Amino acid sequence: MQLKTAIPHIYLDLSKANKDREKLFKAYVKGYVARSHPDWEVVRIEGMMAILERKG
Rank of each mutant, 00 (worst) to 15 (best):
M48R: 11
L14K: 09
K4A: 08
K30G: 04
N18A: 04
A34I: 02
R21V: 15
Q2L: 13
S36N: 09
E41W: 01
L12H: 08
V29Y: 07
D39V: 12
A6F: 14
P38Q: 09
K55N: 11
W40Y: 10
L12E: 14
K4E: 08
K19D: 05
I51M: 06
L12P: 08
A50N: 00
Y11S: 02
S15C: 10
V33W: 00
V33S: 01
K19Q: 07
M1C: 08
W40F: 13
R21M: 10
G31T: 02
A34V: 07
R44T: 11
V33I: 15
H37R: 15
A50Y: 00
R54T: 10
S36G: 03
Q2P: 08
M1I: 13
H37V: 03
E22Q: 13
T5V: 08
R21E: 15
I7H: 00
E41F: 15
Y32W: 13
L12S: 14
L12I: 06
A17Y: 15
E41S: 06
D20A: 09
G47Y: 14
D20Y: 13
L52I: 09
K23A: 14
Y32P: 00
K23D: 07
R54Y: 11
K30W: 12
A34F: 08
L52A: 13
M1D: 12
Y32I: 02
A34C: 10
A34N: 15
K55E: 10
K26M: 06
K19C: 06
D13G: 13
D13I: 10
K23Y: 03
S15M: 11
F25A: 06
R21H: 15
P8Q: 02
A50K: 00
A50W: 00
G56E: 05
E53T: 13
K16E: 12
A50L: 02
R44E: 11
V42A: 06
G47H: 13
E53Y: 06
Q2S: 11
G47I: 11
K23L: 09
N18R: 04
E53Q: 14
Y32V: 01
P38W: 05
S15V: 06
G47M: 03
V43P: 03
H37L: 10
K16L: 11
H37Q: 07
K55G: 09
M48T: 09
V43I: 04
